[in-house]
């Protein structure tokens, strides 16, 4: 997936989210730290051009302390920044790659520490199908790919990696 395809996909995802949540009425967007933020940043930029930017409520969620693999490996915690209440709101969670589903499990857990949302939806740039270890499915998918466990999916971002593309390794 090259830079142009990536940008079209992110535009499409943004429109799909808006389609279901006109003007983001009662809806908030939350990106998952660290790499989901690159997707959510771009989607929020896109959405802000389509509706009044003041209507967009955007937060970032770090799930380090909620992971189920703490015994295996410690991760560096990132910043969590949710400057609004999610009580009774619709939450669109955004991440780059959906693989085993464990990150999203932890994210759901982390989210509940901030209140009880009315509904949580999941928006994913790359969905690695048939590799789930938990019953979690995305609501918005950028691209679905079939991959085997030994393969890696890497998303590169301009701000961080100098180039913008998705590679299956």
């Amino acid at each position: 997936m090259n830079e142009q395809q990536l940008s079209i996909t992110i535009k499409r995802l943004s429109h799909q989210v808006l389609e279901n949540h006109i003007n983001l009425e009662n809806t908030v967007i939350i990106g998952i730290q660290p790499r989901g933020i690159f997707v959510s940043d771009q989607m929020v930029r896109e959405i802000s051009q389509l509706i009044a930017p003041a209507k967009v409520e955007y937060g970032k969620l770090d799930i380090t302390f909620y992971r189920d693999d703490i015994r295996k490996e410690l991760h560096v915690p990132n910043h969590t920044d949710i400057p609004f209440s999610i009580e009774n709101k619709n939450v669109v969670l955004i991440d780059d790659v959906l693989y085993t589903g464990r990150t999203i499990r932890a994210a759901l857990d982390a989210l509940l520490a901030f209140g009880r949302p009315a509904k949580v939806e999941l928006c994913i740039l790359i969905d690695r199908r048939f590799s789930r270890q938990l019953p979690i499915q995305p609501d918005y998918v950028g691209k679905s790919i079939d991959s085997i466990i030994s393969q890696k999916v890497k998303v590169f971002w301009k701000e961080r990696d100098g180039k913008e593309e998705v590679v299956l390794m």
Partner: peptide
């Protein structure tokens, strides 16, 4: 790391399952 935990302590639910 403590900085991130300080933030956790300001949430409505001040507990993490780590």
């Amino acid at each position: 790391t403590a900085l991130q935990f300080k933030q956790v302590l300001q949430r409505p639910v001040k507990k993490v399952p780590s």
